[in-house]
Write a protein that binds this DNA or RNA. Structure first.
Lengths: 331, 331
DNA sequence: TTGTAGGCGTTATCAT
DNA sequence: ATGATAACGCCTACAA
């Protein structure tokens, strides 16, 4: 592989001069620059990032560590992070780290954003430092070098429950995914809490565990309907996809939404407003979540201190999947 | 930051010994090993990947370069690549490289898989070499160090067209996304080709450009229906999401699918069989696509030569969105 | 304006 | 079984 030394030799200049040229120093005369650039192109020179970074002691890369690529893949979140990272002149890499977490261990990145339940708190506490800040999106953890940017999940579900209670619902079910999802569990927690606040009881029997996909929502709800005699008059789902699947199952059974069973989702994905019926849901600004996470990480990298992290705003969006005709007209 | 030298000093051994211990050499006595490991833990030692890789002249990381994180994000594809990469003891990073392509330029990865129309053929030709193999998923390119693993797009659409023609359709429309998508354009090309093979004419007016999302399919079809008096009796869509959106638009207009307009999608995403009506489509094994891409890259890294790359299999799946009652019964 | 040389943290060869 | 030491490719004072 061509090194800078080869380029220098070919251009008949010293290594230092070649380095200056490659790095765009303007202490070098134009003829010399041309010679070096020409030689570099001729030889197909590519700088060695490892050597550069070893010297500079930083990579200008931040890493996003996910648990996998299937399932709910947060496109907007990634966009938010990516935009911020690029703006700062950094690069972002996303990895589904296996159990060795090599990329995390061996300082390939200057900071990390974690959304991966496989990575243990213990490891994060070990890694995080002054020089290696971490932002977590999927847990709470006490460490001066780790900041958490979590969604106001409980609050969102509180809105949903209140909405349904005000419409007169007394028995409300909940659809969620695996227990490994922090957001899912927090939403469930908010559900239980608000139910009790409103004087309703939480029934384990009306909790459906799917896996956050539309298909799983459909299948789980189908099973639920087949195996139960009586149903709640409303369901809240931990995300929109499962709500849509569940609604399809209900409709296929010949029941009406929202008249027989009302539904409220979570996230307000693009499709929710076009769904039939349009889905009531909680809008989450995932892109802002990503931006906030990345900006927080950069503040930590810049050794800023004492800053406040703003909550990610949410908004309850009532639509037809929970509002009957009369209710829609009146509010 | 703690270095191996610090560890060695603390353990009162030489740098070399510390290195041996960290790398699990068994030439070292157990007591010495213990001393070093203890010191390393005490100091929170983390190896410096840059230094290691500089020395070893390889990173054992392969990179997947995408054009962005929104839009159709090929979860299965990523899974396929990831599985293969992990099996080989490598890591995978995925990046949406900006215009500087630093990660690609500066040898942060030992090989690359490209699905990013922003990256020019010229750059790939410049980068690819004996030591830096590249697999492209989104173009055709002539270079001994670049292999292409593309989908049999044209063939898939050929099945779809034949299916519709055999059902008696004479005017068939096509829904696709941006021209920047290689797969989309190839599917369109296959559409035009097969139409003419079957003696039908291709009409520009029946080509709908959306952006591969369900929402865009819905909106574009709505516009199409509003702006035209007469419609094709069938549409083929370059992916399932747009087909579903378009079907919703058609249904909202009070028309029947497939009786008034039949639809065929592409990809056979999970949801297609649960859609109402279930969507006729072309099944693509995207995970196998990822596996094939990654395996091909590793063969190139291993300097294997003369191997054949198998085509990714596809299969036409007829469902109700293109089959009327009688047709379903009889076949 | 250009060259010399030391060092970034490792690994690995060669001694001991 | 362990230690010295020379690379790996690059950057950057400091010299010239």
């Amino acid at each position: 592989m061509t090194t800078l030394k080869d380029v220098a030799r070919k251009a008949k200049v010293s290594l230092a001069t070649a380095s200056y040229v490659i790095n765009g120093s303007d202490l070098i005369s134009q003829p010399t620059k041309d010679k070096v650039l020409f030689a570099a192109k001729e030889l197909g020179y590519r700088p060695n990032g490892n050597a550069k970074n070893l010297k500079k002691n930083k990579n200008e890369i931040i890493g996003l560590f996910l648990s996998g690529f299937t399932g709910p893949f947060f496109g907007e979140l990634l966009e938010g992070i990516q935009d911020t990272v690029i703006e700062k002149g950094y690069e972002m890499v996303v990895c589904a780290s296996d159990d060795k977490h090599r990329l995390l261990m061996e300082r390939y990145v200057d900071g990390a954003i974690i959304l991966n339940y496989h990575i243990k708190d213990e490891l994060l506490n070990y890694l995080a430092s002054d020089k290696f800040p971490i932002v977590v999106l999927d847990r709470e953890i006490e460490n001066p070098f780790i900041k958490q940017i979590t969604l106001p999940n409980s609050l969102g579900v509180e809105h949903s429950v209140n909405h349904l209670v005000e419409l007169g619902h007394k028995r409300i079910g909940f659809i969620t995914g695996s227990e490994e999802s922090y957001d899912g569990e927090m939403r469930l927690k908010g559900f239980k809490k608000t139910l009790s606040q409103r004087g309703l009881i939480y029934r384990e029997i009306d909790l459906i565990r799917a896996d956050f996909t539309e298909t799983s929502g459909l299948l789980s709800m189908k099973t639920y309907l087949d195996e139960h005699e009586e149903y709640p008059t409303a369901f809240i789902s931990a995300n929109d996809e499962m709500a849509m699947g569940a609604i399809k199952a209900v409709q296929q059974k010949g029941l009406q939404v929202p008249d027989d069973i009302a539904f409220v989702g979570y996230d307000d994905i693009d499709l929710s407003k076009h769904f039939h019926p349009p889905l009531s849901t909680v809008r989450v600004q995932k892109k802002l979540w990503g931006i906030t996470a990345a900006e927080t990480l950069f503040k930590m990298l810049d050794k800023e201190t004492g800053f406040e992290v703003e909550d990610i705003p949410i908004e309850f969006i009532p639509r037809s999947s929970s509002l009957k005709g009369g209710e829609r007209d009146s509010g």
